[in-house]
C-alpha cells in the first residue's frame, strides 16, 4: 500500500514587507497509507500552508516532506488536490476536464473517453459530461473536480475546505460521496476544515491547530465506524466536540 506521507520538522515562513513571519512552526505529522486525516483550526493558523507544502506548491523553509519515502520537489500527479474554488477549467466541458487528468497516461482514444465517463459516473454525473462548469451548480462543480482528480489515481488526496462553499444539505451528500469513493480507492486523505462536525463525521485522526505561530496543539484518534450521524456525536465521541470547540474558541476570539 502506498500513499504514506511524512512531514518532518516542517516549518514555513513568508517574507513580506514587515520581514519574515512564521506561518508554521516546526511540525511533525505522519499520515499512514489509506487513512483519513483532518486538520482543523482557526483562520490563519497555517492549515492551507501545510497542505500547499505537501502539494508541492510552496517549498519548506526548513524540514522536509516525504511521500512513500521520496522527498517532494513540486506538484506531481501522485498527490491530488481538491480546491475550495473547484479550479475547473471553464473552457472545457466536464468530460474534457476529466480527460485533462488522463492525458499523461497516453491511453488509446476510446479508452480515455470511457475512463473519463466512468469517473464522472462514480460521482453521479454520468449525464453532465457535455456541460461546461459555468452551467453546473457548486456541488456539481466540486464533484467534477473530484472526478478529475481521481482520474489521475493519486495515492494522496489533499482537500482544502472542499465543501466550505456549499450549503449544509449538499455538504452532507458530498460527505457520503467522499466516504464511498475513499472506501473504494483507499487514498491517503488530508482534509482541511474549520467545521468540527465535518472533521468528526469523516476523519480517522483530527489534528487541532492554533495560530501565531501555526502549530498542532492536539491530536484525537476517531475510531468509531462510519457513517457517523452528527446527532449522535455526543455518544460516539463523549465530550470531544466540546473539547475541540474549546480549543478553537480562544484563538478565534483573540483575533
Amino acid at each position: 500500500m502506498s500513499g504514506r506521507v511524512e512531514i518532518q520538522d516542517l516549518s514555513i515562513s513568508f517574507h513580506g514587507r514587515g520581514g519574515a513571519t512564521q506561518a508554521l512552526a516546526p511540525t511533525n505529522l505522519t499520515l499512514e497509507p489509506g487513512t483519513f486525516t483532518a486538520l482543523i483550526g482557526p483562520s490563519g493558523c497555517g492549515k492551507s500552508t501545510i497542505l500547499n507544502a505537501v502539494a508541492g506548491f510552496i517549498a519548506p523553509t526548513a524540514g522536509k516532506i516525504l511521500i512513500d519515502g521520496k522527498r517532494i520537489g513540486g506538484p506531481n500527479p501522485g498527490v491530488g488536490v481538491i480546491f475550495q474554488q473547484y479550479a475547473l477549467f471553464p473552457w472545457l466541458t466536464a468530460l474534457s476536464n476529466v480527460k485533462f487528468a488522463l492525458k499523461r497516461l497516453s491511453l488509446p482514444k476510446g479508452e480515455m473517453e470511457s475512463r473519463a465517463m466512468d469517473c464522472l459516473a462514480e460521482v453521479g454525473l454520468a449525464d453532465a459530461g457535455g456541460k461546461y462548469p459555468g452551467q453546473l451548480s457548486g456541488g456539481m462543480k466540486q464533484r467534477v473536480a473530484i472526478a478529475r482528480t481521481l482520474a489521475g489515481e493519486p495515492g494522496v488526496l489533499l482537500m482544502d475546505e472542499p465543501f466550505g462553499a456549499l450549503d449544509a444539505q449538499t455538504r452532507l451528500s458530498m460527505h457520503e460521496l467522499l466516504l464511498r469513493i475513499w472506501d473504494r480507492r483507499k487514498a491517503t486523505i488530508l482534509f482541511v476544515t474549520h467545521d468540527v462536525d465535518e472533521a468528526l463525521a469523516l476523519a480517522d485522526i483530527v489534528h487541532v491547530m492554533a495560530s501565531a505561530p501555526g502549530r498542532v496543539i492536539a491530536t484525537h484518534v476517531l475510531d468509531a465506524p462510519r457513517p457517523r450521524a452528527a446527532s449522535k456525536f455526543d455518544t460516539t465521541f463523549p465530550g470531544l466536540r466540546e473539547s475541540i470547540l474549546g480549543l478553537l474558541r480562544p484563538a478565534v476570539s483573540t483575533q
Binding site: G56, P77, G80, V81, F100, K103, R104, G152
Partner: peptide, 16 residues
C-alpha cells in the same frame, strides 16, 4: 494561479 496549480498537480507537462 489556481489554474496553473491544478494543471501541474494533474501532471500536465509545461507545453500542454
Amino acid at each position: 494561479d489556481i489554474y496553473i496549480r491544478a494543471s501541474r498537480c494533474l501532471g500536465a507537462p509545461r507545453w500542454r
